[in-house]
Design a protein around this nucleic acid. Sequence first.
DNA 1: GACAAATCAACTGTCGACAATCGGCTATTT
DNA 2: AAATAGCCGATTGTCGACAGTTGATTTGTC
Lengths: 236, 236
Amino acid sequence: MLNNDAGAPPGTTFQALESDDLVTRIADQVVRAIGDGRLRPGAKVAEAKLARELGTSRAPAREALRLLESQGLIVSHPRRGFFVHAYDADELADIYDLREALELHAADTALARMTEADVARLDAQVATLHRLGAAGMAQEQVVEDYGFHRMLCEIGGNRRIVKLFDHISTELRAGIAIVGRLYDDPVTLAATHDPLMAAIRDRDAERLKRELREHLEDARIHVVQLFRDAAADGKD
Amino acid sequence: MLNNDAGAPPGTTFQALESDDLVTRIADQVVRAIGDGRLRPGAKVAEAKLARELGTSRAPAREALRLLESQGLIVSHPRRGFFVHAYDADELADIYDLREALELHAADTALARMTEADVARLDAQVATLHRLGAAGMAQEQVVEDYGFHRMLCEIGGNRRIVKLFDHISTELRAGIAIVGRLYDDPVTLAATHDPLMAAIRDRDAERLKRELREHLEDARIHVVQLFRDAAADGKD
DNA sequence: GACAAATCAACTGTCGACAATCGGCTATTT
DNA sequence: AAATAGCCGATTGTCGACAGTTGATTTGTC
């Protein structure tokens, strides 16, 4: 999940199997703890304690926290320590807004570069969404949902945008993990991708951008609303 | 230059003057060394050596390098060490493409939210560009050029985008520092901002976006070309 | 009983040390 | 002479330790 820079580099057959790295493993532990709620937003994550519990020294623990800080999941106050980033609704809205800018741009470029094979891949991915939706596998569907949007960015061909998309989706997933389930109805979620595919098949850039904007705007409003509700609940 | 998260927090008058932090100071040193060419792209930056030269221990040196890695200026190969990121032309093109997506989106939002005071600030900034251009102060002009574009992002109101813009401009400045001066003629550079201001004053979003796209596209082509030339020179 | 000062445990920032690993050099082999 | 194998210095990853802070608790005062 971390540092998934790219697939196999072009021209090579194998991908280097990197990092049984302590830092990465510690970071993953923390990410998991945040994801499943053991670490609540705003909670302090003391490097000494973390290192003690994991049986390592403080150096790699500290580095792992710094890594997560650079990914936005952790914030640090100098001489105070590290804390789980407590996203607020405004911030999530900002991130969605950013994502919209990215993805609309990527989609625009993508449509011009898209091969039939790409269309088929996207089609298959949407089919997967429907299948998971029908099976009620909401968790898995969320992953594949991001997969679809990531594909769009990939086809756009700008690696920096893909990297940023990965960054953002990590944050969004973390933010969403806090409020719990995203959509009540996975079948509906799957269906929202159909108009996108239609526009792609017709190679209609304007329509794709319009649909995509709507698609993301809905998601944004939905998440922000859920988040405000959750905040209101928590406040009492 | 590093970690300039935001201006003064809302509701406060002063901004905490943070971090006589060792890590930050080391990072700044490295940034400067990269900026003025003492550290060439691809050069190895050994943490032990860095620490020795700066008279600190390895821990903060290592953290500083990790920080710069998260900002893209440094890349690390596990068990191999840290190296100055050697940008290639494609990568710079990708970054410019990303910047275009960001800035067009921010500008669009900005125009809707813009007050007269904002317009005046932007106007003043362009005037500064002209002044510096006329004085032939190219270095300072580049800084203020980024300042203008940052203002646009700020007015757009999405903090995440501003943060990302800062991130990107750090990288671009580093990339550009490698090829040397960006524009031969600072007067011309200043002038390229006039059509943007005209569109802003007329509150014409479509025109602003069109002009801005052209403005950035020119810069992108210019930089990428310069960069390819520099690479061709260096290769012999 | 409430507020302010002193105390204290825990934590962070920084340091030097040690073992494992890497890249380059030398010696050996064909 | 070219290529390979083994060795060596240098560097990284990790560790435990120490001093200075921080926030919380306790103590003392009005």
